[in-house]
Simulated scan of single mutants.
Amino acid sequence: MHLTLTRTTFTEESTIGELFVDGKFECYVLEDVVRQPGQAKVWGKTAIPTGKYQVRITYSNRFRRRLPLLVNVAGGAIQFGGRRIDDCGVRIHSGNTSADTEGCLLVGLDQKTDFVGRSRDAFSRLLPRLQDAVAAGTVTLTIS
C-alpha cells in the first residue's frame, strides 16, 4: 500500500492536504505549519518534512492503543536516557485543529480553514486498512 499526502492549503496556524491510498482519495489531513526552507523542525509545532516514510503500526503510550507511526521523521528524534529514539511518535490519528496535532497527521472527512471534521469517522475507516496492509507487507507515505 502506498499513501500520498498532497499539501494544498497553508495558513499561519495549520496545513491541510489530501490523502490518497493507492491513488484514490481517502480523506483530508491537517498538520502543523510548514516551516520555511532551511528552518529546523520544531517538535509539536511544525509539519514534518516532505519526503517518503515507512508506516508501522505500534503501541502509543499517549493514546494507549496501536496507531500508525511514521518512521525516521527528520527532526523527530528524541533522547530517552542515553538513547536516541527516531521512532518517537509522529503518528496518524484523529483530531480537528493544530492544537490536537503535536506534529502528527490528523485525518478528517470534511475540511475548512484550520480544521478537519468527522475525524473519528475518517480514522475508523483508514486504520483497519492500514493494519491489514502493514501485516501483509510494506506501507509507505509520500508527502509533497
Rank of each mutant, 00 (worst) to 15 (best):
L3P: 02
G95M: 10
G51A: 03
N96H: 15
G95S: 09
I85G: 09
R84S: 08
F10T: 04
Y28R: 06
R84L: 02
R84H: 01
C104P: 07
I48D: 00
G117R: 10
L70I: 11
S14I: 01
V90Y: 15
K112H: 07
L130E: 04
I92D: 11
L126D: 06
L105A: 12
Y59Q: 08
V55F: 05
I143M: 06
A77F: 04
R7C: 02
L70H: 10
G44S: 06
G38L: 05
G44P: 00
G51P: 06
N61D: 14
T101I: 02
R125K: 15
V139N: 09
E12S: 15
Q39F: 09
A133F: 00
A122G: 01
E102I: 01
D132V: 04
K112Y: 03
H93W: 10
R91T: 13
N72H: 14
R66N: 15
T58E: 14
Q111C: 09
E31L: 11
K112A: 07
I57S: 04
T142N: 06
G89L: 12
G75T: 13
H2S: 15
R62D: 14
L3G: 08
D87A: 07
R118A: 09
R35H: 10
D114M: 05
R56M: 12
A133K: 03
S14T: 00
E13I: 08
S124A: 15
G108F: 04
T101Y: 05
G76W: 02
G137S: 09
G82Q: 07
V29Y: 00
T50Y: 07
R56Y: 14
Q79H: 09
Q111N: 12
V134Q: 05
G108M: 11
F25K: 14
L105S: 12
S98T: 08
T50L: 03
F10V: 03
G95Q: 11
D100C: 03
A133S: 14
L3W: 05
D114F: 10
E31K: 06
Q131C: 11
R65A: 07
S94H: 12
V29L: 02
G103W: 04
D87E: 13
V21P: 00
V139A: 07
K24I: 10
V29F: 00
L106K: 03
G137R: 07
A47R: 04
T8P: 00
E18H: 11
L67W: 09
Y59D: 11
T142K: 11
L67A: 06
G38T: 05
Q131K: 15
F63C: 03
G23D: 04
F10W: 06
G75W: 11
I143E: 01
F63T: 02
S14C: 01
V90P: 03
G95F: 10
T46P: 04
L67K: 07
Q39M: 14
L5R: 05
